[in-house]
Every structure is written in C-alpha cells, then in structure tokens.
C-alpha cells in the first residue's frame, strides 16, 4: 500500500498511468502480428489456468458455504428461508465469485509475473532473449497477458459452479433441500442478464491482472529489492484495478438495464 500512496503523493501518478497505457498499446500493436508464440502461450495458459484451479476451487467452495451459512439467519428472520438458494446464486454469480477469483489471481498470478519477469530483467535474461533474436515483448508479455485474459473467465465460471455446490452443502447443514430443488431454484433465479455481464467483466479483470503483472516485472529495476517491489506493487495495483473495473462494469450493466 505504501507504494500506492507514494504514487498518489507525487505527480508520478499520471506518468505511471501514461506508461501503463503505452504498454497496453504496445500489446495491441505487437500482439496480433506474426510471429505467434503458440507454444509459450499454451504453457502460460497451463500455469495461469490449471495451476490456479486448486486455490480458486477451494476458495470458491468455502465462499459458497460461508455465504449460505451467514445469510440463513437473516432470511429466517424474515420468513424467506426458501429464497436462500436464489439469493446465494445471484450474489455469487453476479458479483462475489468473479471478484474473489480475480483478487486471488491478482495475488497469485500478478505477483508471480511481477517477480518472474523482474528477476529475468535484473539477471539479464530478457536481454539474452533479445540477443537470441527473440522479441521478448511478444514471447514474455503478449503470451502472459493473453493467457490471463482468456483463463480468468474459465476460472471464474468454474468458481461459480464450485461455490454454488458449496452453497448447496451450506443450505443442507441446517435445512433439507433436495439436489434437484436446489439447482432448480438456482437456475430459476439466474438469467442471461446475470451471467453475460459477469463473464464479460472477467475478461477485463484478466487483462488488467496480466497487464499490471507484466508491466511491473518488465520494467523492474534496482536488483533484488526491485523484484520484491515489482511483485508487491503488481498485486496492489492489479487488485485496485479489479475493483475499479467492477465498479465501471456494474454502472454499465445498470445503465443498459441488463439485470
């Protein structure tokens, strides 16, 4: 957080925003021109998607379970216990599951990218790549940003499913709702207006996490201390961006009357 405050305190904030925008522009201008680094892209998808799945899955399960248990007393008080599956489904799918998944990924993937690229920068591995005739921006950055952009919606959808399963167990700790009734209530409560905006915003979450993680790592300086700082500020800035994107997405969804 100290890093973030220092950005605000000085007028460097706008400069930093400008640099990140330029970095994003470079991604769009170079990312869709050959040569395509398919092998590295697949490897990154494996690391970002498959390797994050256990953490995302466990968190989602606990999230669904806890949300259901915590919400139950209030609904019982209003005599609306039967609304529990619907309420849990809407809360999880629309908001909680995508945002928590994105925050977990900002922590795990964002810091990982910041540290990995940062250490590659300070140990001259990025220069070595350039000397080998490889465009390091394409090989390291484009593949990582694309992987996070495409894998985050997948992780978020899996998180939705697992958290709803956690919700089913939560409902049955105190009450008794059959498997079929629970899922019937869940799907009755959900509409495309809940699902589609939720999925679309996760693409932006993924892009922001990849972009910030890569940016912080790629321009890491000052040796090992700089690597630590890059990893730390990648998490802080990416998490903040997730909330800002979420806020904008909610406003747009509301304006378009999608829910």
């Amino acid at each position: 957080m100290a890093d973030l405050f220092s950005i605000f305190r000085k007028s460097e904030f706008l400069q930093e925003v400008g640099h990140i925008a330029k970095f994003a522009g470079r991604f769009f201008s170079e990312g869709f021109q050959p040569r395509y680094e398919f092998r590295e892209f697949i490897r990154q998808c494996y690391w970002v998607g498959y390797k994050s799945l256990p953490l995302v899955g466990i968190t989602a399960f606990i999230m669904g379970l806890v949300l259901t248990i915590q919400s139950r007393p209030t609904l019982v008080e209003f005599g609306a216990e039967s609304m529990l599956p619907s309420m849990v489904a809407i809360s999880l799918v629309r908001e909680i599951s995508p945002v928590i998944t994105a925050l977990i990924c900002a922590g795990k993937i964002g810091s990982g990218m910041g540290a990995e690229l940062g250490s590659m920068r300070v140990t001259e591995q990025i220069d070595a790549m350039e000397v080998s005739g490889t465009n390091p921006f394409k090989y390291l950055i484009v593949t990582r940003i694309l992987a996070t952009t495409l894998m985050l919606p997948v992780l978020s959808n899996l998180s939705n499913a697992i958290s709803l399963y956690g919700g089913y167990l939560g409902v049955n700790i105190r009450g008794s709702v059959s498997w079929h009734l629970y899922w019937a209530q869940v799907f009755d409560a959900l509409s495309y207006g809940d699902m589609v905006p939720s999925i679309i915003k996760t693409f932006f979450f993924g892009f922001a996490i990849g972009l910030i993680g890569c940016y912080k790592g790629y321009y890491s300086t000052k040796g090992t201390e700089g690597v630590g700082r890059s990893a730390n500020s990648a998490v802080v800035v990416a998490s903040l961006l997730v909330f800002i994107i979420d806020l904008i997405a909610v406003q747009i969804t509301d304006l378009l009357n999608l829910t």
Binding site: E116, S119, M120, T123, E124, Q125, D127, A128, M129, V131
Partner: peptide, 11 residues
C-alpha cells in the same frame, strides 16, 4: 554475447 550474469533461462 556472453553476459556477465550468464543470463541462463532459469525455467
């Protein structure tokens, strides 16, 4: 080019 830090790819 032989780098001072060797610059071998760790991964």
């Amino acid at each position: 080019f032989l780098f001072q830090s060797n610059a071998l790819y760790d991964s």
